[in-house]
Simulated assay, not measured.
Amino acid sequence: MTTAAAKKAVVRAAEVAATDTEPSFVSVEYKGKTYQIAVGDDAPIEVLEAESDFDAVKAILGPEQWADFRSTKQTVGDYKNLSTLIFEAMGEDNAGN
């Protein structure tokens, strides 16, 4: 997935969530851990500023969840799998690294 596609996923999720007054979150489970992902207008602004998919995923997860993910000695393959799950959960149907 390109960074532009990641940004489109955030915008698309924002359009879907536009009628909600509650914060919009989805849960992504990977290797026994559950990550809470803010979507739509509740996604962090850093996602739009990201210059790479890697930076976008870090912004989406936020510092605490990113540190938690990293603390378990994940591999590049793990990052790719998690990022695919994240972008799919945000509504990006062609997620791929």
Rank of each mutant, 00 (worst) to 15 (best):
S71P: 04
E15R: 15
E92L: 15
W66P: 08
S52T: 15
L61Q: 04
T19S: 14
A18P: 00
E64T: 13
I37A: 03
A17G: 07
P63Q: 05
T84M: 08
M90P: 05
K33S: 11
T21M: 01
V57K: 03
T72N: 03
P23W: 01
L61Y: 06
V39Q: 08
D55A: 15
G77P: 09
G40L: 06
L48F: 14
G32P: 00
G91E: 07
A9C: 10
V11C: 00
G32C: 08
T72R: 09
G91K: 12
D41A: 12
E88D: 09
E22G: 02
V11N: 01
E15H: 15
A14C: 05
K8N: 15
S83Q: 03
V57Q: 04
V57E: 02
K80G: 03
N97S: 14
I60L: 08
T72Q: 08
K31S: 09
G32D: 02
T84S: 11
S52M: 10
V16C: 00
A50T: 06
K80L: 11
P63H: 04
E49G: 05
F54H: 08
K73G: 06
G96L: 11
E51R: 11
N94T: 14
T72A: 10
A95V: 12
P23D: 01
P44F: 03
K58W: 04
S71R: 10
T3A: 14
Y79P: 01
A18I: 13
A38I: 01
F87L: 14
Y35W: 04
A67K: 09
G96N: 13
E15N: 13
F69C: 06
T75G: 04
D53I: 10
T75Y: 02
E92P: 01
E46A: 15
E15P: 00
A43C: 13
A6C: 15
V10D: 06
S24G: 01
K58T: 05
F69H: 04
D53Q: 14
E92R: 13
I45A: 15
E88N: 13
M1H: 08
E92S: 07
E64G: 00
